[in-house]
Nucleic acid binder design. Structure first.
Lengths: 151, 151
DNA sequence: CTTTGTGCAAATACTTTGCACGTAG
DNA sequence: CTACGTGCAAAGTATTTGCACAAAG
């Protein structure tokens, strides 16, 4: 887990101990593209680390979010979803199947930086999200024709 | 509650009945700038409508969100927060006091529309959010090393 | 008159916490 | 060695649901 060194340093700088469980969660998030929930992380990890606990996953995610190594995506679902990729990127939420995809939005940074200057507030972070139906759901034409779409 | 007519029509178009409770919640949200939680709405409304129930508030908010008359803001807090203003605008979340403010971001629509065209997905809605410390919190405590120290 | 919504309370589900043991520093 | 982290189970807490009555269309 050499690639985790910068993260380890971040933990140390914030005064947190570097534990096996924390590294495992970090490593998991670095390799996941699924924007998993705490429970998903737990279910996947407990196969290799059977004694890990869900409470530790939650504690770890909360801590990692606090130090900025993980993002809480604010998904419109029951469970919270997390992202280990903290670089500038946007998200697309499929309101049909719940999938979350990374999405590249050129030109956003410029707009965001303008806001950071113009506002009286101190802005730490921005997020830009899109909601709709993913390519799969759109092509499957799965009429979940509930009252899904406004307008 | 004359101003609610377009909303009433929306309910009817979706086949929902127009009830006193639904109008009251809609009216409340139209007049609120606080981006309230379900419980806040409940607490405020039960003074004037003592028999209204929290479950109804939740059911109503869920339905109004589904038909696009209310936004679920995806706030980084325990409770969900809602907005009755569905026109294009962004939000600022104070990570210190929890306040949510409307914020005007010029030029965003252009970027968002570009994404709507470029992507293979079907996009219904976008959101642009900012996180940081509001003017009040910022002035009260000039220390902007926002990350709280571990326990 | 039929269907949908409401209020209440109980249930559910996600997340957090208390405590004793284990482990990093 | 000492403080902090972990695992477990138990507790919270926001939100949803079942049901009988009420109200809308």
């Amino acid at each position: 887990m050499k690639h985790l060194e910068p993260y380890i340093n971040r933990l140390k700088n914030f005064g947190y101990k570097v534990t096996h469980q924390r590294l495992v969660v970090l490593d998991y998030l670095q390799h996941s593209k699924e924007h998993p929930s705490a429970e998903t992380i737990y279910n996947d990890l407990k196969e290799r680390y059977p004694t890990i606990s869900l409470a530790t996953i939650y504690n770890t995610l909360e801590m990692l979010t606090r130090v900025g190594l993980v993002l809480d995506l604010g998904a419109p679902e029951e469970r919270r979803r997390f992202d280990g990729n903290t670089s500038d990127h946007s998200h697309f939420f499929c309101t049909n199947c719940g999938k979350i995809e990374d999405i590249v939005v050129p030109g956003v940074e410029k707009v965001m930086n303008k806001v950071k200057q113009d506002t009286s507030r101190h802005i730490d972070r921005c997020r830009l999200d899109f909601f709709g139906r993913c390519a799969v759901c759109e092509s499957e034409n799965n009429n979940h024709s509930d009252k899904q779409r406004p307008d």
